[in-house]
Structures are given as C-alpha cells and as structure tokens.
Amino acid sequence: MRFALEDELRAERFRLIETLEGLSDDDFDAGATLCTEWAPRDVLGHVIGIDYLLGSYVPYGTRINAANRAQADRARMLPRGRLMEWARHWAANPSLTSRLALPVILGDLGVHHQDVLRGLGLRRDVPDAVATAIFREGLQLSLWLNRRVLSHRLVPTDGHRPVGRGPEVRGTREALGMWLTGRDSVAGELEFAS
C-alpha cells in the first residue's frame, strides 16, 4: 500500500544522500551543522535511526536525546562507504512506522537536511511539500521546545495561511519552521513586527 507523501519522503531522502555524497571526507565527518555537536554523518545516523523506532528509541523511554545520541554514535562507528550503502537502502525502503507517520517524518528529515546545508553554508531550492513539512514540524516542536508558536502570528510569504496570534513574524515556510524548532541562526531571514 502507498501512503500520501511516500514518494516525496523517498525523494527527500535521496536528495539528502546527494548532498552528503558531495561533501569532502572532512566535512562529512566533522563539518558544522545546525545540530549542536553533530557533524553531517551524525545527522544521517539520527534520521536513519528514526526508521527503526521500536528497536532504537523505545528502549530509551522518554530519554529522546539519549536515543538520538545512540543513533549518532552508531553511525560514527561505520566507515563512510558502509554508512552511505545503508543510507541508500534506507532511502529506498522506508519502514512501516515511518510510512505511517509520513508528515512528521518528512518534516524532521527536511529540517535535518537544512541543518546540514545551512551549517556548511550551502543552499538549495526546498521543494514545496518539504517546505510545508518543515513549517508543520516547527509548529509542532515549538509547542514543546520554546512555545514561539503560542506568542507569534506566523505569516509565511510563500504560500501558506498565517498561524497564531501576537506580533507578526514573516518569512518562508522553511525559515519560519527552522526558527520555530530553535534554529535561531535563521532569524536574519525573518521580518519581526515591532
């Protein structure tokens, strides 16, 4: 059975792989990302680990950060070539748990792809479905992380209805979503009402 957004999830996974394959070994193993203390290979380990939710996250209970670290550590132990082989398999074969949670999984993947690109000073055109997923991910995570969604009126300038109340913040869905998830380095791309 095919789920809505499944093709977009696979496409975004392969776009992330393409980004990673274009990095030097130094950037892959130690390059900056917007995820504090994680290099691109660690980000890849995390997003692959989400596919194995039951086996890799459930044992950690509510200690999500510890589970994320374990996924990054696992990826760190693999040679780059082996990790990229695993990534290609992961990209082509999303797990059932990922397919059932597609909107959330696509948003998390989109955010982390941007973490890698932005951390290394790279840019790309974010596909429409991915931009919407990043914005949705930001709305959801902000409730838990920083509550920005509850104190601002978010006005996407690229095709989504405004959300919330309070002082306006304007920007692309991608930039708003990244800011909502706590990536403050994107704030310069946003317009804050005074």
Results as ranks from 00 to 15, higher is better:
E8T: 13
R10G: 00
R13I: 11
E21S: 04
L23F: 07
D26T: 14
D27N: 12
D29T: 11
D29F: 09
A30M: 07
A32W: 01
L34I: 00
C35W: 00
W38M: 12
H46F: 06
G49R: 03
G55C: 04
Y57K: 07
P59I: 00
Y60N: 03
A66G: 00
A70Y: 08
R76M: 03
M77F: 08
G81H: 12
R82A: 15
A87P: 06
N93Y: 12
N93F: 14
I105Q: 09
G110F: 12
H112W: 05
V116A: 01
G119D: 06
R124P: 01
P127H: 04
D128L: 01
A133H: 09
I134W: 05
F135Q: 03
F135L: 15
R136W: 09
G138W: 08
L139H: 03
W144S: 09
R147W: 08
R148M: 08
R148L: 10
V149R: 11
D158Q: 07
G159S: 01
G159R: 00
R161L: 11
P162F: 10
G164W: 13
G166K: 04
R173G: 06
R173K: 15
A175Y: 08
L176Y: 10
L180F: 05
L180E: 07
G182D: 10
D184M: 13
A193L: 02
A193G: 14
